[in-house]
Amino acid sequence: MSVEIRNGAPGDLAAIVALDPATGIAERRHDYLSKALAGFGGSSVKVLVLDGQIAGFAVMSEFFGHPFLERIATAENRRRAGVASALMTHIEMAIDDDRMFVSTNESNEVMRTLLAARNYKVSGVVENLDPGDPELFFVIFKTDIDAAIEAAR
């Protein structure tokens, strides 16, 4: 089994769109992912490639001058296999700021569980992005990331 995490490229768009569950719900998602792959607005995309196939991706940008994980998704047949965790570890280890933010809908229990397990702390709530499903914002500080790395050694 070969695993690689690399920068996403415009040629990855079809594979990324195919595994993003929100693409069918929001037609704007295709354009959003295309722009992120092109680096629009300072965005970047990381992809996890497993045995030659994209198994997950993460979109990074900035939030008030700090790194912000905008979107992370895993191929349906690779969920609960550590793909999102591997992407997050890769991103966290590369941040050169004192903190990183991420958000998710209140209804996304899988993501909220992942963030809690990784020691992210709730940082705020925004109502009315998705009516009836508030967006929760989380933060992790570089000192917490460094402490987790040290504890794992």
Results as ranks from 00 to 15, higher is better:
I25G: 04
A14Y: 13
A18V: 00
D31N: 05
I25R: 03
D12C: 00
V45H: 09
G24E: 14
G42M: 09
G39T: 13
V49R: 02
G24I: 04
G41N: 13
A15K: 02
G24N: 12
H30T: 15
G11C: 11
G42N: 12
A22C: 08
V49Q: 08
A36R: 01
P21V: 02
I16E: 09
D31S: 11
A14D: 06
F40I: 06
V17H: 02
G39R: 01
G11F: 14
A26L: 14
A22Y: 12
A9S: 06
R29M: 10
T23Q: 06
V49C: 06
L13K: 09
G24F: 02
A36F: 01
D20V: 00
D12E: 03
A18D: 03
G11Q: 12
G41V: 13
S43C: 02
V47A: 12
Q53C: 07
K46G: 00
R28D: 05
A22D: 13
V47H: 03
K35D: 10
D20P: 06
K46S: 15
L19I: 07
H30R: 06
R28V: 03
Y32H: 12
I16V: 03
G42E: 11
K35G: 08
A15C: 03
P21F: 13
S34R: 12
L50Y: 11
L33M: 02
L37V: 04
D20H: 12
L37S: 08
V47L: 14
V17L: 03
K46P: 09
L33K: 06
E27T: 04
V45Q: 15
F40M: 08
L50M: 10
H30Y: 03
V45C: 09
A15I: 07
G11V: 07
D12V: 01
T23G: 12
Y32S: 13
L19Q: 05
T23F: 03
Q53A: 06
G24H: 08
G11E: 08
G42L: 03
G52Y: 01
L19P: 12
G41L: 14
R29N: 08
K46W: 14
F40W: 15
D20S: 00
G39N: 00
L48K: 05
D12I: 01
S43A: 11
G42Q: 02
S43F: 00
V45P: 10
I25P: 08
L13I: 00
E27N: 06
L33S: 01
A9H: 13
R28M: 05
A26T: 02
A22G: 05
P21G: 01
P10D: 06
D12T: 03
G41M: 13
P10G: 07
Q53V: 13
Q53G: 15
H30S: 09
A26M: 13
A26W: 15
A15T: 01
